[in-house]
Write a protein that binds this DNA or RNA. Structure first.
Lengths: 201, 201
DNA sequence: GCAACATCTGACCATCCGGTCAAAACCCAT
DNA sequence: ATGGGTTTTGACCGGATGGTCAGATGTTGC
């Protein structure tokens, strides 16, 4: 089953990946079982293995798809735009990602936490290259005095940390805030203030 | 084996917990096996179970010990001290914790990521209470105009996110930075700048 | 309506894993 | 040295889990 072709193949592959995302992101690779995924997907376990050769392959497919989605917001940061607006836009897009795709965020986090055993290559390649590229842009803006002088790479780290925190530590965030809060709305306002103050030249 | 008494008991209990921390923090609860822990500890599997009644119990012991260490830096934040210095001190202590106890940080992170199945109570109790208490102090400082007006709880979240990021995402941080960097030293400088600018009234 | 192919499943297998247990090895006070 | 308690272990158990397979069931183009 190299490339899905028929409608059934496409539909079922998607169903499986959707279910697998649910289970992997809440249990980790080792904690997830094919039976669980099969149940969530509403398919039998052998049927899962008709569409994917192994548990490993399902996980790998999810991770590969994930990386692109994950890097897109940073790719969009435009060297020609207004520096503060561009960084702010990146923060906003990244926070949206956490809000709309928390399972993906957690899947990614678990993978990195465990030493990125199945993503090392992508981390050291694509991701590192993209950050290096954008660091040049940021440094340029700093040289021109359009944003404050900071370590550009750690600036990017701070955006990752602050936005992903709300998806990855959701349980903790909600417990501490208590009832009657919209964590993401409040986070948006807080981060707006934070980066406004941090970036001012 | 309710309370370790003899020297051998104390020594072996510690050896087991140390090994378990290694394994649980890099594989998660489900991913860790007693055989792995036994091997790292240099003991046999039945011997592990002579000191602890179950895998679950080893994990629970680690989590319980962890929480106190984890909250201490925030407890130390003193309402009587200088506001900016107190917050900065908290940031510094929390970053030290990430640097010196990265495995503990990851153990905690994995637990929360997976929905805190074995820590819910502590999160909703102790941790929430402590944050609420310190939020009062922070709000007081803001009312007095001694630090900038911000959402105090999200300010605390930001400190957690920014400091723990360096332990939890260590692999990614090192990959992106490349050779010849001291991530924690750079992070310390970056966070100093960030919170100086953020907190200024 | 039927052949050819795609999809699905029950039964099964080998391995792994947490945990048990009886007996061996060890330690130490007398 | 010896006896009584402590510590350690090899062998084993039952259940879970990833994966296989032969055959049943569906689907589609003609």
């Amino acid at each position: 089953m190299p490339r899905p072709k028929t409608r059934i193949q496409i539909r079922n592959s998607e169903t499986i990946l959707e279910a697998a995302l649910d289970v992997f992101s809440s249990q980790g690779f080792r904690g997830a079982t094919l039976d669980q995924i099969a149940e969530v997907a509403g398919l039998s376990k052998p049927n899962l293995l008709y569409y994917f050769p192994s548990k490993e392959a399902i996980h790998q497919t999810l991770l590969t798809r994930l990386l692109d989605t994950w890097l897109d917001p940073l790719r969009e940061m435009d060297a020609m735009g207004d520096p503060v607006a561009e960084v702010m836009g990146y923060v906003r897009r990244k926070l949206e990602l956490s809000r709309n795709y928390p399972r993906e965020s957690r899947l990614f986090a678990i993978e990195i936490l465990q030493g990125a055993p199945r993503m090392r290559e992508a981390i050291e390649g694509e991701l590192t290259a993209l950050v290096a590229e954008k660091a040049v842009v940021l440094r340029q803006w700093m040289d021109e005095g359009r944003i404050a002088r900071l370590d550009p790479v750690h600036l990017v780290f701070s955006i990752w940390a602050l936005t992903q925190h709300y998806a990855d530590f959701d349980v903790q965030v909600r417990a501490v805030l208590g009832e009657g809060h919209d964590p993401y709305a409040e986070a948006g306002a807080f981060l707006e203030t934070l980066y406004t103050r941090l970036l001012a030249p």
